[in-house]
């Protein structure tokens, strides 16, 4: 196997899994191949995908962010409450929520970097903080009545007669593009991979390790807040329970996309493919009707195990040489 091929092997594996799942489901279920189903992959999983973009970059750097699900819930109820109960303009409320997510992320990044604390622990604390904060604002959901939010919530970009992209899906696509650009076409993205691949080398090469790490958690916090907005718009209400367990799905999507969970190697394209795999499994189970939705989690878990073992095997071969 050529080195270049081996390097891309996880990505190819992801693509192959996606193709196999899509074709199998398409042959089994009528209308599965329709454009509408395909568009729904994006709409239904907009929040997950947006959070996964930030998670991808965090995992590139060898870290992990368990707070994203809670940030989603916080943003959702925070913005809804500000707009509906306190009559703040939606744009202002959204900007405030994005700022909260970004600042939280930066703070966690600083604790992780400067105090040398494990990322999982600090971001777990962030998760507690934001989920508790969400419930502090309100324990019940709040419906969106503001005309601008309603319009945004219902707005669609028509593609074909039956398929149309919702706002949240557009945000997802834009963010995937932005994330891809950041990851693969900027020094920041490459520094992240260097940091995840070998921190002491990155330091010796003179890369700005601390700033990069703080920035990536801030970016992940921003993405999570955006995901919260997307989820709020999709569901038409703000709910402090939004996004419970979302961080795990986001991690799964990233890893199934061929990104090394210990950092240093990966591709944003893989995250898109991983998201589609998630969407195909979900839709197939919905189409089937007789299958328990819990199978989604189970299949995702099995894929996760498979990809982690595959990566481990490839890495071992590299080290052995």
């Amino acid at each position: 196997m050529s080195p270049a091929l081996q390097r891309r092997l996880p990505l190819f594996a992801t693509a192959a899994v996606l193709a196999a799942l899509y074709v199998t489901a398409g042959l089994r279920y009528d209308n599965f191949f329709s454009a509408r189903v395909a568009v729904d992959f994006f709409t239904d999983n907009a929040a997950l995908g947006i959070a996964a973009v930030g998670m991808t970059l965090v995992i590139f750097s060898g870290g992990i962010d368990l707070s994203v699900g809670a940030v989603v819930g916080f943003t959702s109820i925070f913005v809804a409450t500000l707009v509906e109960k306190h009559h703040v303009h939606p744009a202002l409320a959204a900007v405030a929520a994005l700022a909260v997510g970004t600042v939280l992320g930066a703070g966690m990044g600083a604790l992780i970097h400067f105090f040398r604390q494990p990322a999982f622990l600090i971001t777990l604390a962030g998760m507690f903080l934001m989920r508790g904060g969400a419930f502090w604002i309100s324990t019940d959901s709040t419906g969106l009545a503001h005309p601008l939010l309603q319009r945004l919530s219902l707005w669609e970009l028509p593609l074909t007669e039956k398929a149309a992209l919702k706002m949240s899906a557009l945000v997802l696509l834009a963010l995937l593009a932005l994330g891809g650009l950041l990851a693969h076409w900027t020094r920041f993205g490459r520094n992240l991979l260097a940091l995840g691949g070998n921190e002491s080398s990155a330091q010796l090469m003179g890369l700005p390790v601390g700033a990069t790490r703080v920035a990536v958690y801030a970016f992940s916090g921003l993405c999570a807040a955006l995901a919260g907005l997307a989820l709020m718009l999709n569901s038409g209400s703000g709910n402090p329970r939004d996004g419970i367990g979302l961080e795990l799905d986001a991690i799964a999507v990233v890893v199934i996309g061929g990104t090394l969970l210990s950092g240093g190697r990966g591709h944003m394209l893989g995250t898109l493919l991983g998201l589609l795999i998630f969407g195909v499994i979900q839709s197939a189970i919905r189409f089937d009707g007789s299958l328990d939705p819990a199978w989604t989690r189970l299949i995702i878990g099995a894929l996760l195990l498979g990809f982690i073992l595959l990566q481990r095997l490839l890495l071992r071969r590299l080290v052995r040489r």
């Binding site: 367990g245 939705p293 819990a294 989690r297 189970l298 995702i300 878990g301 099995a302 996760l304």
Partner: peptide, 8 residues
């Protein structure tokens, strides 16, 4: 990730 799925 998968444990809750198994439980369900």
């Amino acid at each position: 990730v998968s444990g809750r799925g198994i439980a369900q």
